[in-house]
Structure formats: C-alpha cells, structure tokens
C-alpha cells in the first residue's frame, strides 16, 4: 500500500507505458491511460481497506473494472496474454521502487504480487467467459440462419441445406421440415444438399432419419443436389439410401415431386411464342 502511493505518478506512467507497448497501438494511449488510472485508484482504495484477498469485498470495485476491461479486450479480438498483461505489467513497473527499498517493502511487494496474480487470473476468466458467450451466440445465429424451409409449389416444400450437418442442426432441420409439412399440408418434401461440403456415414444417418420421420407423417421425401464427388464418397462408404428417391439436381427433384403429386409439366408446341 505504501509502495503504491509513494511514487504514484512514475509507477502509473510506467505501467501505462508497458501495457500500451504490448498492445502495439491497437488501443489509443489515452484510452489505456484512462482505464489504468481508474484501475489504479480502485486498487489503492482496495489496499487501503486492508483486504488481503483479491476475491474479498475490498476489491469488488477492482474486479468490476477488470471484468469490464477484459470483456472489451475479448470483443476487440485481443489474445488472453495481451489482456492479462494489463494487470501483470504493474508488477514490472513496481520493481525499480524495490531496488533501494527496505525489507519491509519487499514483503509488501510480495503480498501485492500475490493479489495481482489473483486479479490476472480473474481477468483471464472474464475474458474466456466473454469469448464463450460470443461463440454460443454465434452458433445460435448460425442455427437460425441456415435452415429455411421454402415452398416450391402447392404441396411441395424444400429445405436447402448449407454447411456441415451435425446432430444439433439435423434436429433443427428435422423439426422445421416436419412442422412445415403440417402447416402447409404438403405431401412432398425435397432436401437439397448442394451446399453440404461432405457426406460421411453420420451425415447420411441424419438424412435418413429425417426422411423416415417425414414418411411417418405421411409425406414423401426426395434428396437432391448430390454432387459427383459426393456420390462417389457415398458409394465408397457403402451407405445405403434404400428406397429413398435421390436426384442429381433440385430441378429433377421438383419434377419428380410434381409428378408424384399429380401435376404434369407440358412444353407448349409453339415454343413459348
């Protein structure tokens, strides 16, 4: 506590210097200055309250500031070390004060160092939590984005699948498709896998499940958009699609679905004139 207040100006300046150097100018020095000065003030207050534990009440202000700081760093795409250095650089800044200090100073420094280490851990924790929040929110956005069910014709609906299929996504696709079957009263469904980059046994399993579920509800399901390489992979893996109708393109699948629902497509004799 003494240690922090003796040479306050110099220590803060050095700290700010150290931090902004490690951030390589990706945050303006003025901003770092403001953040760290606030933090410094809170830290001194906490120490003055006589708390020894970084998770104690005296440091709640410090913790709030640090959480905010690491949250911002995580959003701006900094690495965990760049975030933690904001705390740890203070230790370096304090070192010069030790050189001509007494044994008492050293003990105080060690105590402070322990608190700072704890705070650095807190920073990392907050950083990770924020990153996880970002990831999970992105995942759910992706889930919503990637599964539209479109109506192609009266009684014919299609799901264009884009991206890799996993169990969670198949579940969403399946639910949406089946609900759409009920809502629109469609008897024909087309699953288009043009946008699926790879098909392995698991993806095939998921597709089969969806088709069987649609059948149980009384609808016919066609799989379309099987690219040449995918057809080769499917055969090489020995996946059996059984009696499920598969078509190369969505157009073929639509034609098949229309024929099954009793619609005939006729090209006019005069060539459309």
């Amino acid at each position: 506590m003494e240690l922090l207040s003796i040479d306050q100006e110099r220590v803060t300046a050095e700290w700010i210097d150290g931090v902004s150097r490690s951030l390589q100018g990706r945050i303006s020095k003025a901003e770092v200055d403001r953040e760290l000065r606030e933090l410094y003030g809170a830290l001194v207050d906490g120490l003055r309250a006589g708390d020894e534990d970084a998770r104690g009440d005296g440091f709640s202000e410090v913790r709030a500031l640090l959480t905010e700081l690491s949250r911002n760093r995580a959003r701006q795409g900094f690495t965990p070390s760049e975030t933690a250095i904001s705390v740890l650089a203070l230790k370096q800044a304090l070192e010069p004060a030790l050189r001509n200090g007494s044994a008492e100073d050293t003990t105080a420094y060690l105590r402070l160092a322990r608190i700072l280490d704890d705070l650095a851990l807190l920073t990392i924790e907050a950083y990770t939590r924020t990153r996880e929040q970002i990831i999970s929110s992105q995942a759910s956005q992706l889930m919503e984005l990637s599964t539209p069910v479109v109506k192609l014709w009266d009684g014919v609906i299609a799901v264009p699948l884009v991206g890799t299929l996993d169990s969670a996504r198949t579940q969403v696709v399946m639910e949406k498709l089946l609900q759409a079957l009920v809502d629109t009263g469609s008897e024909q469904a087309i699953i288009d896998i043009t946008g699926v980059p790879a098909v392995d046994t698991q993806v095939a399993q998921h597709l089969l499940k969806t088709v069987v579920a649609a059948r149980l509800m009384g609808a016919e399901c066609t799989i379309s958009g099987i690219r040449p390489q995918i057809a080769q992979t499917i055969v090489a893996l020995g996946i059996e699609f059984g009696d499920i109708v598969t078509k190369a393109s969505l157009a073929d699948a639509l034609q098949h679905a229309l024929r099954r629902s009793g619609v005939d497509l006729v090209t006019r004799q005069d060539g459309g004139r």
């Binding site: 639910e175 089946l178 009920v182 579920a213 149980l216 509800m217």
Partner: peptide, 14 residues
Amino acid sequence: VVGMRPAVAITLVE
C-alpha cells in the same frame, strides 16, 4: 396412420 405430430415422428425415429 394419419395426423402424426412432428414430435411423435421424431421420437419414433429416435
């Protein structure tokens, strides 16, 4: 069999 609900169909498949 008519009128199977989506949730029921999924359960049966599972």
